[in-house]
Design a binder for these strands. Structure first.
Lengths: 178, 178
DNA sequence: GGCATATATCTTGATGTCGAACCGTTCGAT
DNA sequence: ATCGAACGGTTCGACATCAAGATATATGCC
């Protein structure tokens, strides 16, 4: 196929791995999250619902750190969930800047209706790898993610609480960093 | 840390790996793509520019398949690039439905100014893994991506040409599937 | 030739997403 | 007690993104 140019083997290896990482993630995400549309939920909305379901009422800031989203974004997603009556904002007695997000009965019901199938899809998405391979993959990804996160950037996850929301599924696994 | 509930070990393993996959990808993407903002390029815009740079003029459809984006989305991204004079649309002589996207001189200059640093960032992002580990990761991700893509969904990459654009970096590596 | 169907792209409406600017609120140092 | 910095959220503007639906153009089959 005659690759035109580009440099060292190391560069090619890195670029190649990067492509596969991007593609695999895109494919897995699509497979896992697309079906959420049937419940009229986006990935982010599901993420918020799930985080609050597992952990109880959370502030915007906590949610943002868990899902790795900007504060402005959190406001929007919560607005959309609140508009549909799936969550509600509760103000904090002590600190009036804070507003905590809690599931409504409707929200709880919806999440519980959708969650089992979601987990099943996650399992399915990974069923091409056996337990050892999953463990290996997990280890490599953790190193990769850690290094990338450490290297300068970002909102900094949520190391403190040990619970990780992220793009859905999050809190189902309380451990990540261990 | 007492994970509350959830089922089988296999489920936990899959969920855990999914989290790490999402987080690692997010972190790596941020690290690699954020700096593109300095050239006022988004990830998608860079992806289009790069694809066309490597492969020559492409139709919207080809671009969409390479970057795994919907047709509507491709239109928007190209509009934004065209507005800035970085690309131009050329109509096809034989088939008037087709519009091919080509780099302008400005676009070429911009891409060439930005590309080397981009590759360097990709290499950096992966420097926590040695060559063997990268190869292993690559293999596992390919299996994962393939299985997920096969399982029902999607726009179906671009198996035919062998060239893969994707979220940037793409075409720098002509081979992927091999 | 002529119509049904398939293709390639564009449009529309809803959501997500970011970064930056902004507004109350709280807290710390003096 | 006061004032300035830090904090928690919201707003704004620009882009991305998808799913559906609309258009225009090609093609295939009779």
């Amino acid at each position: 196929m005659a690759t035109k140019h580009h440099g060292t083997p190391r560069e090619r290896l890195a670029l190649d791995t990067y492509i596969k990482l991007s593609r695999a993630t895109a494919a897995v995400d699509a497979r896992i999250n697309r079906p959420l549309a049937e419940a009229s939920l986006t990935t982010s909305q599901f993420g918020v619902l799930e985080a609050v379901w597992h952990l109880g009422p959370l502030t915007h800031g906590e949610i943002g750190r868990k899902l790795l989203k900007s504060s402005g974004n959190v406001t929007v997603v919560i607005d959309n969930l609140a508009r549909r009556g799936l969550v509600q904002r509760e103000s904090d007695a002590g600190d009036r800047r804070i507003s905590r997000v809690a599931l409504t009965a409707t929200g709880t019901a919806l999440l519980e209706a959708v969650f089992p199938a979601h987990v099943a899809r996650v399992v399915d998405a990974f069923d091409s790898l056996d337990a050892d391979e999953l463990a290996t993959l997990s280890t490599l990804l953790r190193r990769l993610g850690r290094a990338a996160a450490a290297a300068g950037n970002q909102p900094e996850p949520d190391r403190a609480t040990g619970a990780h929301a992220l793009t859905a599924v999050q809190t189902a696994v309380q451990e990540d960093t261990r």
